[in-house]
Every structure is written in structure tokens, then in C-alpha cells.
Design a protein around this nucleic acid. Structure first.
Length: 262
DNA sequence: CTTGTGCCCTGACCGC
DNA sequence: TGCGGTCAGGGCACAA
């Protein structure tokens, strides 16, 4: 589930809850979530440090610690993080706990695709995956000109482009569909056939969809009047009322409205 | 360069 | 109710 808006909302929530707090305890019910260093070292390195900041890059979350260390993590398909009372019952699939006095950060992940690693702040750009990420779509650096440059000379479907983390960071299957829906562009539409007006609509849709989702998720609100809300077999287009279509595009299950999206 | 496949895991769901 | 097959919103390596 987690894409850029989810991870951004998570980072904001964490910032409110654990900023400046000191780690007193680390537990690893499933040591395999830690990529590096070795799980036994991981806990020892964390204890005693305090949280300096919590950030995000693409779908990765970054917890900056005192002493120039950073926890880099990815939630993949089923990961989630919550800060709860230390006495609260453990949810199933809890993989990692980081304790502060009274509270505890818990990394829960049913499918065990998610992971964390601990790196020096200086070495952040050596983290594979993080290193190859493209532009942040909500950053001022992502301008219409930047998007045009990204599209220039490129072939393939719009949906495939949106899913490429090395071009634009943080968009996953769900929001790719939503962005194309709002831009009224067909997911299989070829990049090189886009007209200037459509590129403009594409750009605005990327920004608008992600920004609104960040806002909604940060307030723990749902999304209304969107494809998101009706994304299910038998779903109906909120705009024209016609049936949605499901297809495999760019290797992913794709929902779209064949009438509204061209 | 682009697309497709399989894989890492677990659980939900469907049809028989 | 039980069983096996299929699929899932990510990312990576690899092949064509």
C-alpha cells in the first residue's frame, strides 16, 4: 500500500511522536528485517541515541539519529509503522520495536518484504535503491520543463514511466492509476504521442494528486470522487458513471475508465 | 533503451 | 469444510 503520500504522512506522524526522544531499548522479533549491520550490532548502535529528524525520499523513510546515523527503511507491500504505548498488545507480524520511555515504535510487516538498515549520514547516497531515485515530484525542482525533459526521446506507456523510481520517485501502482485518471490519459498511451496540452495536464495531475493525498492521509481522511475510492472489480467511473476497465499494463493490474481516458 | 519474467514472503479468495 | 491454484499496491536481477 505505501507510496509517496503514505510514507510522507508516516514521516510527519513520526516527527510529532518521537522527535528529540532517546532510544532506550531495541527488540528484533524478526532479525531478518535488518539488512545491515548484523542484527546484534543494530540494537547496540541505536541505544542511547536520540531522534534528530524524520524524513522521506521516494518511498523510503529516513530516521536521522544523533551521532550522524540514519535508519533507512522501506515498507514495500505490507509494511507499516506505529508508535504505541509499550504496554499495548503486540500485533501479529511485528518485526522490530524501538523503545522510548513509555512509548514504542513498531514495524509491522505481514509479508516480510520490508526492511531497514542503519547507515552513516555521509553514506546515504551509497544505499542501493536510494541512490538511483529520480526527482521528488513535490519538490520545486520538479517543474513542467523538468517533466518535458524526462519525456523527451522516451518511448513506452505512460503508466510504465510513472512507475519508474529512477525517473520520478515515490509513485506506485495505485497513484499511477489515479494520476492518469485525473489527467484523462490512458495508461497505455505512448509517451511520444503526447501533445503539449496533454503534457501540461499530466504534470498538473502528478502534483495535484500527490499533494491532495498527502494532505488527506496526514489528516487520516479518505479520498472522495477519485478512482481510488472505486478501485475494485465492477467499479464505476465517478465522472461518467461508465464501468471501469481492468487490464494488465506495464506488468501491473491497472484500473481506468476507457471513456474518459484517452 | 524497453518489456517481460521470476523471485523474495504470507494470506485472502475462488472454484471445485 | 478442505484443498490447491492464483493473486496482491515493490523492487531487483536477469533475459530477450
Amino acid at each position: 500500500m505505501p507510496e509517496l503520500p503514505d510514507v510522507e504522512a508516516l514521516a510527519r506522524r513520526l516527527r510529532q511522536r518521537i522527535l528529540r526522544r532517546r532510544i532506550t531499548r531495541v527488540a528484533l522479533p524478526d532479525p531478518s528485517v535488518v539488512r545491515s549491520p548484523r542484527p546484534s550490532v543494530f540494537g547496540r548502535r541505536l541505544r542511547g541515541r536520540s531522534i534528530r529528524d524524520v524524513g522521506r525520499r521516494g518511498k523510503y523513510f529516513l530516521v536521522h539519529l544523533s551521532g550522524g546515523l540514519v535508519i533507512v527503511g522501506h515498507l514495500r507491500m505490507t509494511g507499516d509503522i506505529a508508535v504505541v504505548r509499550r504496554t499495548d498488545p503486540l500485533r501479529p507480524h511485528t518485526r522490530l520495536m524501538i523503545g522510548f520511555d513509555g512509548d514504542e515504535l513498531r514495524f509491522v510487516d505481514q509479508r516480510r518484504f520490508g526492511h531497514v538498515e542503519l547507515v552513516g549520514a555521509r553514506a546515504l547516497d551509497t544505499v542501493s535503491g536510494l541512490r538511483r531515485l529520480g526527482v521528488e515530484p513535490l519538490d520545486p525542482a520538479f517543474t513542467p520543463a523538468r517533466l518535458r525533459a524526462l519525456l523527451r526521446g522516451r518511448r513506452g506507456a505512460l503508466k510504465a514511466l510513472l512507475l519508474r523510481q529512477d525517473l520520478i520517485a515515490g509513485i506506485g501502482n495505485i497513484f499511477a492509476d489515479e494520476i492518469l485518471y485525473q489527467a484523462r490519459l490512458h495508461p497505455a498511451r505512448q509517451i511520444r504521442t503526447l501533445r503539449p496540452l496533454e503534457i501540461g495536464a499530466f504534470y498538473r495531475s502528478i502534483r495535484r494528486v500527490l499533494r491532495r493525498a498527502v494532505r488527506a492521509l496526514s489528516r487520516r481522511r479518505g479520498a472522495e470522487g477519485t478512482l481510488l475510492a472505486v478501485r475494485a472489480p465492477g467499479g464505476v467511473c465517478p465522472r461518467c458513471g461508465g464501468p471501469l476497465r481492468v487490464a494488465r499494463i506495464a506488468g501491473r493490474t491497472t484500473y481506468f475508465c476507457p471513456r474518459c481516458q484517452r
